[in-house]
Nucleic acid binder design. Structure first.
Length: 549
RNA sequence: GCGGUUGUAGCUCAGUUGGAUAGAGCAACUGCCUCCUAAGCAGUAGGUCGCGCGUUCGAAUCGCGCCAAUCGCACCA
């Protein structure tokens, strides 16, 4: 059991005994004991504001409550307790506590950072889900980095997770893809063609057409238009999807489940609509079918089937989310671009109307990315093809830097991505700073080969530099937990940076080569734990930890 | 007009289930390699936490109202 929980237990018992002895008169519910690492070392190893929080329900001054708890607490691992400020209880642990913890970590190092399985129902997370009609751009990159990092973090925190990509492979955009590739195909074969009005102008469409020409030549040139369009749609779709999967794989993004929208068009959309019609949430007006989403807090009602009988995108999305709910996940997370926020209320409205608990669906919104090069904003546009694609970004700055930069800001902050900085191999670049710490440790390990791994006396490490590093390491499991609860990869990015900083300080003050054997053994074990933790935390972000730089 | 997000040091940003003297990096300035990777370390300086009112023992954090930036408000996806 973690030290923190032990202290919390001791406090609860002390309070309980005071209540039984009628010292405290309980007028309300006891809050949970909240233990934190204090901002200054002078304030002990752990602190709680419990006495201040309970002042009201005990009708007693915080300092008196603190005094009572202090006198009743019974815990062998606590060195001393001090009352400070307005009523903080500061706990000072006996020094052997942290050494025992460190020892446990060291002899079970592979598992450090992997929390116990929570045995919760599976969490599903859907992310990227870009249309298979073009290349992934930088905005998708942020979603890909965030989604995959959240998956890693949740798994590390002991949750069961399944990732999913929703492929919009039905409807207008596929028609446009077919028409666009068709136009390029004919162009390449020397025909005069007018480019379709809503077609995709980006150069990757030409590349796709070129591949088709290279493989099939003019085989489809003389087919009837609609037949050729059908064939080209299939070929282009396969090509686009393959490119998309490759770009994601290069970016260390691996999806468990690829969900095709087409599978919804075999009755699932109709049956979802039918249920909503039967319970009165869908009505007819002006020849179209409308979802009465205002009843559930949406701004206005929404069309689900047009006058011409064709279902809207929303209809497919209702069927899709119904399908997700029917698969029985405990929580479903959608990672959407911030420009889709208006969509939340209508999807949730539909789920509520279908009788599901819409709170199980959590929508995380990713704010926009702006790229800067040479201090200038780089414009992006998928239509004109002047965008920077994810592929180009990886080529330019590398997967490690790109992922770290995407992840170091909270997802609901707009991100200014400085391409020049991401490319710099210097201390200005946080990715290198962290990786360098790892490489330094690996370098030491290579040079120290004659030290035994047994009977390590961890308590020899008692200087500030050593204790600071130890304490930082002990915080790691809790950081993973917090990052998982908040879906906040930037917490891990920050932690990895702080840990690297702690190590670099240690490195200056504490040598391993050339010091007395027992101390060298202890320090070597400490830096091995550090290396593991840096590598593990970077791993959660999908960033590599090189052994030499 | 309505809704989402953001506003913290010169710049880029952490920090929200309310807590102790608000933290990093970069940029500026001063030191440190005969010593395990100087891609590093130590130090100095830098703040009305957008503005105002409120809630309370206590507010960057919660509530209300302003201001500014940004994204969105389709029978498109």
């Amino acid at each position: 059991m973690e030290i923190k929980n032990k202290i919390a237990d001791a406090i609860k018992k002390a309070v309980q005994s005071a209540i039984e002895d009628k010292i405290f008169d309980l007028n309300g519910e006891l809050p949970v004991v909240n233990l934190t690492v204090p901002p200054k070392k002078d304030f002990g190893d752990f602190a709680t504001n419990f006495a201040m929080q309970t002042a009201k329900i005990f009708h007693t001054a915080p300092k008196n409550i603190a005094q009572e708890i202090k006198s009743r607490i019974d815990a062998p691992f606590i060195e001393k307790i001090e009352i400070a400020g307005a009523g903080f209880l500061n706990f000072y642990l006996k020094s052997d506590v942290i050494y025992t913890e460190l020892k446990n970590i060291y002899y079970n190092l592979e598992n450090f950072g992997q929390l116990a399985n929570k045995n919760n129902p599976t969490i599903q997370i859907e992310y990227v889900s870009a249309n298979p009609t073009g290349l992934l751009h930088v905005g998708h990159g942020r979603g890909a980095a965030a989604g995959s990092a959240i998956v890693n973090i949740l798994r590390s925190a002991g949750y069961n997770v399944e990732s999913e990509y929703y492929i919009n492979d039905a409807g207008n955009q596929m028609e446009n893809l077919a028409k666009s590739v068709n136009a390029r195909y004919l162009e390449l074969l020397g025909q005069e063609v007018e480019f379709p009005e809503n077609g995709y102008h980006a150069v990757d469409i030409i590349d796709t057409a070129k591949k088709i020409v290279a493989e099939y030549g003019d085989k489809y040139l003389n087919l009837p238009e609609d037949e050729r369009l059908r064939i080209l749609m299939d070929l282009a779709y396969a090509d686009k999807l393959a490119e998309l999967k490759k770009d994601l794989a290069d970016f260390k993004v691996f999806i468990d489940n690829w969900f095709s929208e087409r599978t919804l068009h075999n009755g699932k959309i109709e049956s979802a609509i039918k249920i909503l019609q039967e319970n009165g949430t869908i009505y007819s007006k002006d020849g179209a079918l409308w979802l009465n989403s205002t009843k559930y807090g949406d701004d206005k009602d929404r069309v689900v089937v047009r006058e011409n009988g064709v279902a809207t995108y929303l209809a497919a999305d209702i069927a899709y989310h119904k399908d997700k709910f029917d698969r029985g996940f405990g929580t479903m997370i959608n990672l959407w671009g911030a420009d889709h926020h208006g969509y939340i209320s209508r999807v949730k409205a539909a789920m509520t109307a279908l009788g599901y608990d819409a709170d199980k669906l959590k929508i995380l919104l990713l704010q926009m990315v702006s790229l800067y090069r040479g201090g200038e904003l780089v414009k992006m546009s998928k239509r004109t093809g002047e965008s920077i694609t994810l592929h180009e970004l990886i080529e330019e700055v590398g997967t490690d830097a790109a992922r770290y930069f995407f992840l170091m800001r909270s997802i609901d902050s707009q991100l200014d991505f400085d391409l020049d900085l991401a490319k710099k191999q210097s201390s200005e670049n946080p990715v290198y700073y962290i990786q360098y710490a790892h490489a330094r440790i690996c370098s030491i390990c290579k040079q120290v080969t004659n030290l035994s791994d047994e009977n390590i006396n961890f308590s020899l490490m008692n200087s500030n530099a050593e204790l600071d590093l130890i304490n930082k390491l002990l915080e790691y499991p809790q950081e993973v937990e917090k990052a998982a609860l908040d879906f906040a990869p930037q917490r891990i990015a920050r932690y990895a940076y702080d840990l690297a900083a702690q190590f670099h300080s240690f490195y200056r003050d504490c040598r391993i080569l050339g010091v007395e054997t027992e101390l060298a053994k202890a320090r070597l074990s400490l830096v091995k734990i550090t290396a593991h933790t840096i590598k593990h935390s970077l791993g959660l972000l999908g960033v590599s930890a090189p052994e030499s730089m």
